[in-house]
Computed example of a mutant assay.
Amino acid sequence: MTDHGTPAVELRAATRTYGTGERAVTALDRVDARFEPGTFTAVMGPSGSGKSTLLHCAAGLDRLSGGEVVIDGVPVGNLSERALTRLRRSRVGFVFQAFNLVPALTAAQNVALPLRLAGRRPEPGAVTAMLAEVGLAGRERHRPSELSGGQQQRVAIARALVSRPAVLFADEPTGALDAASGAAVLRLLRAAVDHHRQTIVMVTHDPLAAATADRVLFLADGRVFDELPGGAGAERIALRIAHAQHTVVAR
C-alpha cells in the first residue's frame, strides 16, 4: 500500500506529443501533479485541453513522450509492457463512461475478472461484499443487460475497487447516466475516499460532479491552468472553466 509520504500517483514534467514535425500536437506540456493517498481530485478543462491524455498517461495506459509518471512509488517509464500490465492490474483501477463490462459475464464474474486476470483468486465473500458495498446485494447473478445504466456503473466501480488499488481513475463516470444515477455514483466514489482512504482521480465536465472532490485541477492547452478546493462550489468551478475556455480562444 502507499505510504503516507508517497503519492499514489505523481507526474513530473509529463509531456505527451502526437505526430511529428508540423503535424505534431502536444496534448500534455510538462505537467507536474501529485495525487496524495486518500484524496479525490477532479480534472476539468475545455475540449482538447489534455484531460483524457493526462488520465491515460497517469494510469499507464499511454506512454509519455517526456517526463515521468510514478505509480505507488514505481516509475513506469522504463517498465516493459508485461511489467506495466502487472502494475496496472495490482495497483490501478479504472472506471469508464461506457462501463466496459463483459456482456456474457454476471455482475460477480465481472467484478472478479481483474483478480483472475492477475492470477489471483478472490478471497471468499470478497466479491459479494464489494457488490453489497455498492448497493447491489442480491444482483450477483445478473448480467449487464439485466441491469440499469447506473447499476452497471456500480458494477464497474466494484470491479475497479475489489483489488483495493493505490489509485482509481474515472473517466467521465457519470457522463452516460441520468442525474439520480450520477449522484449515486458520486456518493459511492466519495465514500470510497472517506471510508477506505481510496485515491481517486476523475475527469469530468460537470461542475456539480467536480464539487464533490477535494480539489479541482483545471487544464488548458495541455497545462495545469488553475486549482480550486472542491468545496469551492459548482458555480465557482463553472466560472473557472469559462475562464479557461476564454483563455484558449484568446490564444
Score class of each variant (00 low, 15 high):
Gly5His: 14
Thr53Leu: 06
Pro114Tyr: 02
Ala132His: 07
Phe96Cys: 05
Arg23Leu: 09
Thr15Asp: 15
Ala132Glu: 13
Ala250Pro: 04
Glu235Gly: 07
Leu228Phe: 07
Gly67Met: 06
Leu219Ala: 00
His4Phe: 13
Ala137His: 11
Leu105Arg: 03
Ala13Gly: 14
Asp194Thr: 07
Ala132Tyr: 00
Val102Pro: 13
Val224Lys: 05
Ala220Gly: 13
Asp32Trp: 06
Ile237Val: 10
Glu133Trp: 14
Val69Ile: 01
Glu227Cys: 08
Arg16Gln: 12
Ala137Gly: 08
Gln151Phe: 01
Arg159Cys: 10
Ile157Pro: 07
Leu79Asp: 12
Glu123Cys: 08
Leu11Asn: 05
Gly175Met: 04
Ala33Phe: 03
Gly119Phe: 01
Gln151Ile: 07
Arg190Met: 08
Val155Phe: 08
Leu217Asp: 04
Ala129Asp: 09
Ala184Thr: 13
Arg139His: 15
Thr247Gln: 06
Leu186Gly: 12
His195Val: 15
Val248Cys: 01
Glu81Ile: 03
Ala58Ser: 09
Asn110Asp: 12
Thr39His: 05
Arg164Cys: 08
Pro46Glu: 07
Ala238Gly: 07
Val162Asn: 13
Leu28Pro: 02
Ala13Arg: 11
Val248Trp: 00
Gln151Met: 12
Arg223Ile: 10
Ala27Asn: 02
Val92Ile: 15
Ala104Glu: 15
Val76Asp: 06
Glu235Thr: 14
Arg86Glu: 15
Leu84Cys: 14
Arg63Tyr: 02
Leu84Phe: 06
Ala183Arg: 05
Gly231Trp: 05
Arg91Tyr: 14
Thr2Tyr: 03
Asp72Phe: 05
Arg154Ile: 04
Arg116Val: 09
Asp221Cys: 11
Leu228Val: 00
Val249Pro: 06
His243Asp: 11
Thr106His: 03
Val69Lys: 01
Arg154Trp: 12
Arg86Val: 12
Ala33Thr: 04
Asp3Glu: 15
Arg120Lys: 14
Phe94Gln: 01
Asp3Leu: 11
Ala238Pro: 04
Phe96Lys: 06
Ala24Phe: 15
Arg139Lys: 14
His4Tyr: 14
Thr17Cys: 08
Glu172Val: 07
Ala170Val: 11
Thr85Lys: 03
Ser90Asn: 09
Ala156Ser: 12
Pro75Ser: 01
Arg143Pro: 03
His196Gly: 10
Thr106Val: 02
Val25Cys: 01
Leu186Ile: 09
Leu168Ser: 07
